[in-house]
Nucleic acid binder design. Structure first.
Length: 571
RNA sequence: CGGGGCGUAGCGCAGUUUGGCUAGCGCGCCUGCCUUGGGAGCAGGAGGUCGGAGGUUCAAAUCCUCUCGCCCCGACCA
């Protein structure tokens, strides 16, 4: 491609709409333009990269035995109703009414559609297992689109769905997808880690997230840097906190804490560390209020709490209920004297002489102790990891960092096949629900997270396999006939080789501008025709990433480029 | 959805507090000259419903009301 014939609008200044590096660079390098909040147009360069990522995904899916389909973006509401996810998605679902008054949704994902199809078309164990996948735009009315293509209202997702006759089969299908994901992200040159995850609104049990560590990531990842244990924030386990030895129990004392109702306020007022305080949160479980005790500096993990309680979902009690249960204004709840069931976090169970609310407005209690002052009904792990927590496997310090979720694999089981009646007859002629798995990859996120991790002050640094063009030819002076003849001849020559994608910067601009642009759009290899060429007829080859420079005579250029491809693809 | 901010040329911004003549600056763009190894220089030029509607006023980018859009923090989120 000749630069002058494409549309590559580079920007010298940072766009005001962008906050993070990848977003700024995608705009500056002319990959994307925003059309409206959460929706982006991919310009020629962006489209080339997008297609490269898609091709890699497609190749690896096919290699793993998955079969490609293409599903509609339009979805009827009844299937989402049947699976119970109409409520789960709620306002995230983009819907519209057609001219006949029928409401249709723009698909946020496609479990229901695929399950419906497979349920209709597959009837026998002989037709299983099967894994179908598609690469398609999904729509979600995100409350807050952010960070360019990292969180947008429409995005491209590869989603695959496996159908098996039993859990053994599911495990195999899952493993195949898991391995394919590793190959995809390896080929995209991403540094990623895999974490255990909770399956959340998808349903099902086992799940893994593929994350790219990044300070701009919206997901929290918990890792043990010693033994390799890793999980996301909802899922992460940690070692129990040991009980202090030889503690003398002190006498309970009621103290006045006027209008101090947050942990922070009480901590400051009484000069007691929040880790020596216990907060009492009133939840509603099965219609009954229960008390959940947590150390002052800890946060409740509702995902874990939900599981402990064996519920679908839990919610904090409203103010009136809390005041009724505790007999005090909000902020002065404590376990002493409470009549409700009391669930204590493990960290609370090992604490002694702590501070709690007195169940009396404007008062707290000092030196409260479990057993002596109140009874715990159940000790459980219902909190998030905090700094200082230890690895559940090797007791080393846990590391808490952020990451971008680029892929997620789930073992769904029969949640959807039960709801949408996707059944088959087994060898005994008995009807059974198919065992499902689902597997997603955020295609746009691969690009953004790659840039997030691979750029410098001059611009993007593409890995060879994702670069929109692998080589850029820069004639320093386009009005010099010899240079231009050489540039065109190399361009023609290299363009005839399918694997070498070449961009010729034929614009009549000063060299500085062309060098800066080449760096900005991140082309791995530059071929510069300039001073050296005039002097010695040699061409200069410069690498974007390392800055290394090689000289080659025109007749050797093709072999040199191929040699560099070899080197660049080895890492 | 709660809180904050912004909207002036293709991009980045000043001007708005305290209303005043023809609305500015940098980059980019067009023409010419010159220049050609890291975002040159000179000369000339094009480009604006000041987000939109209504109002106040002799006079509105500037004040008031409504409205649309965008960004940030939070809540939310496979």
């Amino acid at each position: 491609m000749k630069w002058s014939q494409s549309l590559i609008p580079t920007l010298k200044e940072n766009p005001s709409e962008a906050e993070i590096d990848s977003h700024k660079l995608m705009i500056r390098a002319g990959l994307i333009r925003r059309i409206t909040a959460g929706a982006y147009a991919y310009l020629p360069l962006g489209t080339l990269v997008l297609n490269k990522v898609i091709n890699i995904v497609r190749e690896e899916m096919n290699r793993a035995g998955a079969i490609e389909v293409f599903l509609p973006a339009l979805q009827p509401l009844n299937l989402l109703e049947e699976s119970g996810r109409l409520n789960v998605f709620g306002d995230d679902l983009i819907t519209f009414e057609d001219r006949h008054g029928k409401t249709t949704a723009l698909g946020p994902t496609h479990e229901e559609i695929i399950t419906d199809i497979v349920g209709n078309e597959i009837n026998s164990y002989r037709q299983l297992p099967i894994t179908l996948y598609q690469i398609q735009t999904k729509f979600r009315d995100e409350t807050r689109p952010r960070f360019g293509v990292l969180r947008s209202k429409e995005f491209i997702m590869k989603d695959a769905y496996s159908f098996d006759i039993d859990y053994e089969g599911l495990n195999k299908s899952y493993k195949l997808m898991y391995d394919a994901y590793c190959r995809i992200f390896d080929r995209c040159d991403l540094d990623y880690i895999v974490v255990e995850a909770d399956s959340g609104a998808m349903g099902g049990d086992v799940s893994h997230e593929f994350m790219v560590p990044s300070s701009v990531g919206e997901d929290v990842l918990i890792r043990c840097l010693k033994c390799g244990y890793s999980a996301n924030r909802e899922r992460a386990e940690f070692a129990p906190i040991p009980k202090e030895n030889h503690v003398t129990l002190q006498t309970v004392k009621e103290v006045l804490t006027p209008n101090k109702h947050t942990i922070q306020e009480v901590s400051t007022f009484l000069k007691v560390s929040s880790s020596k305080m216990v907060k009492t949160m009133i939840y509603i479980s099965n219609g009954e209020p229960i008390a959940v005790l947590l150390r002052g500096d800890h946060e409740v993990n509702e995902t874990k709490l939900t599981k402990v309680l064996g519920q679908e979902a839990v919610a904090l009690a409203d103010h009136t209920t809390i005041e009724h249960v505790t007999g005090a204004r909000l902020g002065f709840a404590g376990p002493v004297g409470l009549k409700t069931r009391i669930i204590a976090d493990q960290a609370v169970s090992v604490l002694s002489n702590f501070v709690t609310g007195a169940n009396k407005s404007d008062f707290h209690l000092l030196n409260v102790n479990t057993e002596r002052d109140f009874k715990i009904d159940q000790i459980a792990n219902v909190r998030y990891v905090t700094k200082g927590d230890k690895c559940p496997k090797c007791n080393h310090d846990l590391d808490i960092s952020q990451g971008i979720e680029i892929g997620h694999v789930f073992k769904l089981g029969t949640k959807y096949s039960d709801a949408l009646k996707a059944k088959f007859l087994d060898t005994n002629g008995k009807e059974k629900s198919m065992i499902m798995g689902c597997y997603g990859i955020g295609v746009n996120r691969i690009i953004a997270s790659l840039i997030e991790r691979s750029h410098d002050e001059n611009g993007i640094i593409w890995p060879l396999l994702l670069a929109p063009y692998k080589v850029i030819i820069i004639p320093v002076n386009v009005s010099d006939t010899n240079s231009m003849q050489m540039a065109n001849s190399i361009y023609e020559d290299l363009s005839n080789n399918p694997g070498i994608e070449v961009l010729l910067d034929d614009r009549d601009l000063r060299p500085g501008v062309k060098f800066k642009d080449a760096d900005l759009i991140g082309i791995p290899i530059k071929i510069i025709i300039g001073r050296k060429f005039t002097e010695t007829k040699e061409l200069e080859i410069k690498l974007r990433k390392s800055g290394e420079i090689f000289l080659a005579r025109p007749e050797n250029i093709k072999s040199k480029i191929k040699e560099l491809f070899e080197t660049l693809s080895k890492y």
